[in-house]
């Protein structure tokens, strides 16, 4: 590996820019490319590189020049919880155990208190401002849990126009139907709104906050590991 390649790779990682290192396993020739850049990438292996990043799975591909190893260097997994509510407490802890950097967003300071969420990042800005500052990427899951449209909706509006791999919102089917009406009125398309998973979580008959947290984390995991590529394709250009 060239020293220059390594320097650039470390700079990309520091800047949290997803990058693929392509190395020819016969000759050692290498290059870096950025399949997820909005501007696109001209690299001939862009499709495979994109898949490696989306599935977080490095892989070797056969090419005319010999086998090329695509090493996916991803941004960290993140979970943004809108609402420092009861469910968020077990969910934040479980998600941290599963490897997520967890951020809890709630402008209500009595809820968003460090005593309730020890060791976690808490943001007390208004949810849309908080979301814009957090810049969700393809490795980010967003779960809106406040039950309060004043807080959930602004967060969802930003979430739905981000490449986040998972967007979930708490609430019954009836609540969800009203949310569709509100978000449509706010200018979002049905395709965009359709990315919201609700009722949130896998159906495991969860009752307690911890059980609901399990069902949410299970669904996030399912999407991360199996449906990431499809979910990504729904993101508007």
């Amino acid at each position: 590996m060239k020293g220059e390649t390594l320097r650039q790779l470390l700079a990309d990682k520091a800047a949290e820019r997803p990058v693929v290192l392509a190395t020819n396993l016969t000759t050692g020739a290498e290059r870096l490319f950025y399949p997820l850049d909005p501007a696109g990438s001209a690299d001939p292996l862009v499709a495979q590189g994109r898949e490696a990043l989306m599935l977080d799975q490095s892989t070797t591909v056969a090419t005319a020049e010999g086998p090329i190893f695509l090493h996916a260097f991803n941004t960290p997994l993140r979970m943004i919880l809108i609402g420092a509510v009861h469910i968020s407490q077990p969910l934040a802890r479980m998600a941290a155990m599963a490897g997520y950097d967890v951020v809890v967003v709630d402008p209500r300071r009595a809820f968003a208190h460090a005593v309730r969420f020890p060791g976690l990042k808490i943001v007390t800005d208004w949810p849309d401002d908080a979301m814009r500052a957090l810049r969700p990427d393809h490795r980010t899951a967003i779960v809106a849990l406040t039950h309060d449209p004043k807080l959930d909706d602004p967060a969802l509006q930003v979430a739905l126009r981000s490449p986040a791999f998972y967007i979930g919102a708490l609430g019954s089917k009836k609540t969800a139907a009203k949310r569709v009406e509100r978000l449509t009125a706010a200018g979002l398309t049905l395709a965009e709104i359709g990315r919201i998973r609700g009722p949130v979580g896998l159906d495991i008959n969860a009752r307690s906050p911890a059980e609901i947290a399990i069902s949410v984390l299970a669904e996030v995991t399912q999407v991360l590991r199996a449906e990431v590529v499809q979910a990504q394709q729904k993101v508007p250009a």
């Binding site: 990682k13 977080d56 799975q57 490095s58 090493h71 996916a72 260097f73 991803n74």
Partner: peptide, 10 residues
């Protein structure tokens, strides 16, 4: 994948 451990290595 490489994310956590490889950073220290590199």
């Amino acid at each position: 994948t490489g994310t956590a451990n490889s950073e220290d290595v590199l």
